[in-house]
Amino acid sequence: MIKFHNVIKLYPKGVKALNRINLHILPGEFVSIVGQSGTGKTTLVRTMIGEEKIDYGKIEIGGWDITSIRPSEIPVLRRQLGVIFQDFKLLPKKTLFENVAFAMQVCGGSPKKIKKIVPHVMKIVGLESKIHRYPQEVSGGEQQRAAIARALVHRPKILLADEPTGNLDSLNANEIIELLLRINKFGTTVILVTHNREIVNRLRRRVITIDNGMIISDQAVGKYVL
């Protein structure tokens, strides 16, 4: 599903954010990526969604070589990926429903399709009773769930979560992880970037540890090793 071959990413001033990353993630996997701050985890995510060009190597997503993807093809790629972040990136002046619908509107989704899919994904994330609230009227966990609902509207094959629990207390964080596991059970490949030792250890799934832009460990049933 995701393949990295010898990927190097340099930032200006000689920062080697990714240093010869080799990675192979299979369809349906649930992979945690851990590592200390500034080691290149977010950069890894950004290269996968075409936000950063790499300087060496090759990246394949679902068999598609996106190494030198053209700007006009990036939207096509992004519709196959769901992405969520630590800050939920919801629009404050739109209700949760409108926020999720927005993602479909801007991609040309018909009103009929929007009416069908938005309540469906809202139900998956357990927000069906709060769809008409504004982001500031719900908890952080619920905001993140709305963001996940939005990431699901295009039925992505891969869900990328960059520290989705970073702003949440452990109760809400656990709920989000439960949700991600449920989505993974439906067949979506989930990549979870996290700092949370407790979560990683409890998951008992594949863990990739990055340090200084390099993969220093990749365990099928991993523990937080740092």
Partner: peptide, 17 residues
């Protein structure tokens, strides 16, 4: 800015943005 960032994230085409 926020809208544009989100549009890009969810795959809105460039002309649409």
């Amino acid at each position: 800015k926020r809208e544009i960032a989100i549009m890009k994230l969810v795959g809105a085409s460039n002309w649409f943005i």
